[in-house]
Amino acid sequence: MSASTEALRAEGIVKTFGHVTALDGVSMHVARGEMLGILGDNGAGKSTLMKILTGYHRPTSGQMFVNGAPVSLGSVDHARTFGIECVYQDLALVNGLSIYHNLFLNREILRPGPFRLLDHRAMRRHAEAALADIGVNIPSVDLEVGALSGGQRQAIAVARAVASNARILLLDEPLAAMGAREAGLIIGLIERLKARGDIAIVMIAHNYAQTLEICDRVMLMQHGEVTFESRAAETSPTELLEIVRREYRAARVG
């Protein structure tokens, strides 16, 4: 893959919390229009990696590159300026707020004038357009997010990232705890985003079959390291499972 389409690269990322090494030299890359799946068990370091990519945590050592240029992300807001947006597992949505307030949380549209008042009308209009743009069907953007289903909430969370001009979209377990129909809704949404070709997507997941189905490339993480990497078409859930099983056996013997 040529450097010109490469959206995000991380080299030798190490992250320690006190005596615990959460990430031990992880490298990854993803290109525009490509979708990378990161698999691994709980505690493998997937979420820590995600939080480093979004600027939530700073790596202990290692280097990140956006569009080939080295960057050091100081905060979530800073990462945003590079088009890095994350949709978290715990759904960064506020139940008590409406859909449109959630879509614009911390990047509200303000009315002109000295009082910096919220422009509810403009946010409502943009929210409707943003949802229509990616094919998410919701009766009204005035609905409180707490009243929506899990799939709808996930879709709103993805829409929020896309609406804020995400170039690098990070999805943390987007299909977790979702029924087939709900998951179908999100998979459809992800496919439409991929088809646009201008967004690089990184997805964290547990489910091997689902991940291989929708990702172009997958990476397996175990105890803070990348232990396997492949094009999705060239591997299978069986092979991935075998690698994990081998690891368990080694651990038991050790």
């Binding site: 994350c86 960064a92 506020v94």
Partner: peptide, 16 residues
């Protein structure tokens, strides 16, 4: 303020 009380993790993750 509503976001902080409603979902502090979400609020923090959105940069508030």
């Amino acid at each position: 303020t509503i976001a902080t009380g409603g979902n502090v993790v979400a609020a923090a993750e959105s940069g508030i």
